[in-house]
Design a protein around this nucleic acid. Structure first.
Lengths: 212, 212
DNA sequence: CATTGATTCAAACGTCCGTTTGAATCAGGC
DNA sequence: GCCTGATTCAAACGGACGTTTGAATCAATG
């Protein structure tokens, strides 16, 4: 990574910031190159197109993030041996790394989290396809783990609750800041560990609700 | 309402449809007037600007929707007299009318629901301000009711869970269709009553989780 | 029928967009 | 010093955008 040219990284940083705050669709290449202080053509020289730039922005952080998720899940599998991984542990492995990004990255972490949340909500089929591609492996490993942790839950209920999980997580990533003002300062979205606790707590209870 | 000119209503219908499917930002006035089969200038003649058009699209359905929510809440208050309204009843009054819009409106219902979910996720401050204005009264009445239904829940936890509720609800409104393919056809987002049940069920359990 | 105000229309406005081009600049190997 | 390939640059491309304009059309009134 250290050999990445300044121009390329400057573009990624500026694009990440602006995509996250204004949304990919509402951000122009000219705004990006203005912030990155590079030439307009540099974007197409290094990335090819605006779409590919977004893809690169996402992949830069999503690849290690998903690797961390899978590693945490495998660690739990090792710990539990033949036994089933408790629901809470699976959820922590899934949402923890994403929410924690806001702290442990020097910068850009909170910003990227917001972007990831936004991409979940973007109607643009190009963006959706990109996300699906990035999340395919994670979904393929976590869904069976979740299902094993909830053996008595009917499949239909299970998928509904996955859907609600995605909504709560995406909204929390995209707009945690809104909670500060909305709660009159009583909640602090910068305290990531509290955030993870609150979300996992809420989701665990939701998943364990008896079906009707 | 019956006296609304065809042109005005045609524009609202076309705009609602396109805003919902592609997102307000990615929809151009020229696409709207193409679908509505009216002249481009008619939009500015009747609505003034693209922003005002979106506002009008939202208000047309959001005003009666919010009125229904408040009416349902007041009905519960009457029924319960001095007692506290059960959590589940409050949640049904809040999310039921929104989710049910997809059925009981001749057309445009499901479409508008999707648009409402999208607007929740839109970064554009103009759209956010518009939503806040529309939802102020509803929030002011429902939050105290929720708080009364959860007297033992610490305020901080309470606001976190409201945040999760908004995320799950918005995602369900904006992208219920995704659940069909994702669940391999096992869930049917068109069955609104099941959808309401599933969501209320999940949220009720989440809200009642003991705090840590 | 003439007049008036409301509505529709085709055409254009200026601006910003993503992308392309071709020349200028820079680096390192011969 | 010169060549070569990689990078940067200013400038322009065609197209789409939201908005404005001014004339044409329509409906109703006196």
């Amino acid at each position: 990574m250290a050999e990445m040219k300044d121009t390329k990284r400057d573009i990624l940083d500026a694009a990440e910031q602006l995509f996250a705050v204004k949304g990919p669709h509402a951000t122009s290449l000219r705004q990006i190159i203005g912030r990155a202080k590079v030439n307009l053509a540099a974007v197409h020289y290094h990335f090819g197109s605006k779409d590919s730039l977004l893809q690169a922005v996402m992949a830069r952080r999503l690849v290690p993030l998903n690797a961390e998720r899978l590693a945490l899940l495998e660690e739990q599998e090792r710990k539990c041996g033949r036994r089933v991984i408790p629901l809470r542990k699976v959820l922590v492995a899934l949402v923890g790394p994403a929410l924690r990004l806001s702290r442990n990255s020097k910068k850009g972490g909170a910003v990227f989290m917001q972007l990831l949340g936004r991409c979940f909500m973007e109607p643009d089929p190009k963006i959706q396809a990109m996300l699906d591609r990035q999340l395919q492996e994670v979904a393929g490993r976590f869904i069976p783990a979740l299902q094993r942790a909830l053996p008595k839950l009917p499949t239909e209920d299970f998928f509904w609750r996955i859907h609600f999980l995605v909504g709560a997580m995406a909204h929390t990533m995209a707009d945690a800041e809104r909670l500060r003002t909305f709660s009159g300062g009583r909640c602090d979205p910068d305290d990531t560990e509290v955030m993870i606790d609150q979300l996992v707590n809420f989701l665990t209870a939701g998943f364990k609700a008896k079906s009707r």
